[in-house]
């Protein structure tokens, strides 16, 4: 039999999940070790939209690992993860923060890698433009940087 657990987001949305699914979060796992009878977990740092995605991720990965570790499932998981990450940048950042807060290590690695891909192979100016960052480096700073990291401009 599988015990259920209710996760509540900071905007009041409730998600009922199997305990085993929720245990992928080290933070929830630790919480349940302290209070074993808990049936409801309030998550003050995660909104409903993000928690829905995290639950979706944990459910899929729980089911996928139950099926066994064949090459076929590995490829299927990879494909699913890729589709899962096809989200707006703001959602991706919220997922990183939620994965960090809930301590879901595999989701944290997955989302951080996806965020790194946004920056990968971009010039400094392209990064500024993408994230709307103002260049507040002084001419002195820039000259020093140029001498320190000239090799990467070559």
């Amino acid at each position: 039999m599988n015990a259920k657990l209710t996760l509540t987001s900071n905007d009041g949305q409730k998600f009922e999940v199997e305990k085993e699914v929720a245990l992928q979060s080290q933070m929830i796992k630790g919480m349940l070790e302290d209070i074993q009878s808990a049936a409801s977990v309030p998550l003050a740092n995660v909104n409903g939209q993000t928690l829905a995605k995290v639950v979706e991720y944990c459910k899929f990965h729980y089911e996928a690992t139950k099926k066994g570790d064949t090459q076929k499932t590995k490829a299927a998981i990879k494909k699913w993860d890729k589709a899962f990450l096809n989200v707006e940048q703001s959602v991706l950042f919220d997922l990183i923060l939620a994965a960090n807060y809930l301590h879901v290590e595999s989701l944290l690695q997955l989302t951080c890698q996806a965020a790194a891909k946004l920056i990968c192979n971009k010039t400094t100016q392209e990064i500024r433009d993408m994230f709307n960052i103002e260049n507040d480096l002084t001419a002195e700073d820039e000259a020093q940087l140029l001498s320190e990291i000239e090799w990467k401009f070559e």
């Binding site: 990183i96 965020a115 790194a116 920056i119 400094t124 960052i133 260049n135 820039e142 940087l145 990467k152």
Partner: peptide
């Protein structure tokens, strides 16, 4: 996030701001 970048990307990031 930055830990996933190679040295060239990391160096370019270092000149953003």
């Amino acid at each position: 996030v930055l830990a996933f970048l190679g040295p060239h990307d990391l160096a370019r990031c270092g000149a953003v701001s």
